[in-house]
């Protein structure tokens, strides 16, 4: 196959730049999603504190029940409309400026926000399932030893729930790596966006997207390896196998 250098000279730098933006989208979203998922999962799995239980259920059904692309559009195109309403209110009542400025997120900001919320909703489901599979007796035993409610969660329930939920959680991060490509819909020039623009300029979609696919594949392989290493590092003999 002839490799015309002009095309590849354009493609690789563009893909690397896109890849960097993809990483900048994925890393905070994965971390934020995991943290949010653990918190929401704890609340949903233990139904404590009670007043937060229903709001968390509503949040999860909202984000699991709607298309990610729709969520992105609502955040990116819908929030500014709210900003139009908020700005005069803020000025009139002397409310802080960041309140209405929040309603005008950049493509990057909107994407990360929606990815965190969406990923958190899915992660919380894995954590909740894991919590439900831990025997209630252990919670009782912790309370009997004088643990406060929070201490029982953090020292007994959470370490076990994380281990049990880990395969599911890592699966969700791997999904996230791929659905980060939807940020392209908001005009963020991440990996997919870069491949599309070079591909359409040279009218060579197949090679562009094939190369982009290689980037995704290597990132997913790296993540898979990392997660299974952590899984082994945290393994407890006989735990979760009964």
């Amino acid at each position: 196959m002839m490799i015309e250098s002009a095309f590849y000279q354009a493609l690789w730098p563009a893909l690397f730049k896109g890849f960097k933006l993809s990483l900048a989208l994925i890393l905070p979203s994965a971390a934020g999603g995991l943290v949010l998922g653990v918190l929401v999962g704890l609340i949903r799995g233990t139904e404590q504190p009670r007043w937060l239980f229903r709001p968390c259920q509503a949040y999860v059904s909202l984000f699991r029940g709607t298309a990610l692309a729709v969520q992105l559009f609502i955040c990116y195109y819908g929030l500014p409309e709210l900003g139009l309403l908020l700005k005069p209110l803020c000025l009139e009542f002397g409310l802080p400026e960041w309140l209405w400025r929040l309603c005008y997120p950049s493509a990057y900001g909107a994407s990360v926000l929606v990815f965190i919320l969406c990923s958190g909703a899915y992660q919380s489901e894995y954590i909740r399932g894991a919590i439900l599979s831990i025997k209630r007796g252990q919670f009782l035993a912790a309370r009997a030893l004088g643990f406060s409610r929070w201490q029982s969660f953090s020292a007994v329930i959470l370490p076990q729930a994380l281990r049990l939920a880990w395969p599911g959680c890592s699966n969700e991060v791997i999904y996230l790596i791929k659905y980060s490509s939807l940020a392209y819909l908001l005009s963020a020039r991440e990996l997919t966006g870069a491949a599309f623009s070079v591909g359409s300029f040279h009218f060579r979609y197949t090679e562009s997207f094939f190369c982009a696919a290689l980037f995704y594949l290597s990132l997913v392989s790296l993540a898979t390896w990392l997660f299974s290493r952590l899984e082994r590092a945290w393994a407890v003999p006989g735990f979760g196998r009964s």
Partner: peptide
């Protein structure tokens, strides 16, 4: 307790 309730991860 009857069923011990040890913390399985420790």
């Amino acid at each position: 307790f009857q069923d011990f309730n040890l913390f399985d991860h420790l």
